[in-house]
Simulated scan of single mutants.
Amino acid sequence: MNGGDGDNGGNGGNGVGGGGGWKRRGPLLWGLAAVAVLSAAALAVNGTTTTASSSDDESDAAARPRPSGQAPTGSASTDPSGGASASASVSATVEEDGKLGGKGRESPDSSSRSIPLTGPGTFTTAGGTSGTVGKGARVLRYKVVVEDGLEQSAADVARQVEGVLADPRGWTADGNSGFRRVSNGPSDFVVRLATPGTVDEICGRYGLNTRGEVNCSVGQDVVVNLKRWLLATPVYADDVDAYRALIINHEVGHFLGHGHVTCPGAGKPAPAMMQQIKGMHGCTPNVWPYDTKGRLLTGPSVP
C-alpha cells in the first residue's frame, strides 16, 4: 500500500535566513531573492512525498496459526496487554484508508455520534465461549476484547464477530479452518476493538502508521479501529454491518496467510482480500471470501 500522508511538513525553508542586507542591494537582488524563496517553498511542498507513510504493509504473509485444542469456559476479564509484543517474529499488515476523505459520504452516524479519540489501553474480554464452526481439522481459538470505557459491550461485539466467522461464505469454506471463541486460557488470535489512538499505539509498535483512521493485523492481534467500526467507508455507508464483516474477514484473512489481491474484472465481486477502501476499480461491493457455491472470490495478487 502506497499512501503518503501528504502532511509531512517540508524543512527546505531554513536556508533563506540571514538576508538582512537584501533591501540595500537594489531591485535586481530583491527579485532574485524572491525567486529563491518561491523555489525553496515549492521544494518543501513537493518534498512531502519523500517521507513514506508507514501505513504500507510490512509484509502480506501473516503469522502461521498454531494448532488448537479444546477451549475452556470463563467470564469477562480485563486484558491490559494492548497487543502482542513488538519483538515477536511476526508480520504486520494495515488497511490503507485511500480516498476515505474524498468523494462519497460516511455513515449517518458520523454527524451524531461522538467517537473518543483515545482510551486507557486496557481491554475487557467477552465472557463465555462459542460453539466450534467449520469442519476443518484446524480449530483456531480466538478472543474478542473491547477497550475499556467504550459504549460498545464486549458481549455485543463478540456476537457480531462470531456471526461473521460462522457464515458459510467466510473462511470456514476453505475446508481447513474452524473457529471457536474463548474467554480464558490460550488463544490463537485476538480481535480488539479500540479507539483510534490506541490502534495507532498498538500498530505503531510494528512500525505501522494507521493515522487514527484504519485497522491493522499485527502478530496475533486483529486490531479494529472504532472509527471504522462505527462509520464504515463511503461505499458501505448504508450497510455498516457489512463493512464490519469485511474488516473481520480481511484482517483474519491476513492472519490465515492470505495477501492482498486486486479486482478480477469489471462487474465482478470485490474479493475480501482486496483493499476496497482504496477504491473498487470496477468491482461490485462484496465482503465475503467465498460465494454461496463455496468458490473463492479472489483476483490478481498485489506485488
Rank of each mutant, 00 (worst) to 15 (best):
E151S: 15
G163N: 13
D148N: 15
D148M: 10
T132R: 15
S153D: 11
T118S: 14
L140D: 12
R141F: 11
S153N: 09
T125K: 03
T118P: 02
S111T: 13
S130R: 01
T125I: 09
Q152I: 07
T118C: 01
G163D: 13
T118I: 08
D174M: 00
T132D: 05
V164L: 00
E151Y: 12
G163H: 10
V144Q: 10
R169W: 05
Y142W: 11
R138L: 14
V161M: 05
S112L: 12
V157T: 04
T172A: 03
A154Q: 06
S110L: 12
V146Y: 00
P120I: 03
T118G: 09
V133Q: 05
A155R: 14
G131M: 02
V161D: 03
S130P: 12
T132V: 15
G119Q: 02
D174Q: 10
G134W: 02
T124A: 10
R169D: 00
L165C: 04
V139P: 01
T129D: 12
V164N: 01
T125M: 06
V146C: 06
T125E: 03
G149R: 07
V144K: 08
T129N: 13
A137H: 13
A173I: 03
A137D: 14
I115A: 02
R141Y: 11
G131W: 02
G136E: 04
L165N: 01
G136K: 00
G163P: 02
L165A: 01
L140E: 14
V157R: 00
L150F: 05
F123N: 01
G119V: 00
G149Q: 09
R159H: 12
T125N: 05
A126Y: 02
L165I: 04
T129E: 12
R169G: 01
T124F: 06
Q152Y: 04
V161S: 04
A158Y: 06
T125P: 05
G149T: 09
P116D: 07
Q152W: 04
E162L: 07
R159G: 12
D156P: 07
S112Q: 13
P168E: 11
E147Q: 12
G149C: 08
T129L: 08
G163T: 10
L150C: 08
F123Y: 13
R159E: 12
A137S: 15
L150D: 06
Q160W: 03
K135Y: 12
S130Q: 06
A158Q: 08
G119T: 07
E147G: 08
R169K: 15
G170P: 02
E147Y: 08
V146Q: 01
A173L: 03
F123H: 00
G170L: 04
V145L: 09
R138N: 15
P116A: 11
G134C: 08
V146I: 11
Q152L: 10
T124V: 13
R159W: 03
V139I: 15
A154C: 07
R138E: 14
Q160R: 15
G128R: 02
Q152N: 14
V139D: 11
S153C: 08
T129I: 11
A155L: 09
R138P: 02
K143D: 12
P168M: 02
V146D: 02
Y142D: 01
D167H: 07
S153F: 08
R138T: 14
L150K: 04
I115V: 11
V133P: 01
G121C: 03
R138H: 15
S114R: 13
T129F: 07
V164S: 01
G134N: 08
D167P: 01
E147I: 09
P120F: 10
V139K: 15
Q160G: 08
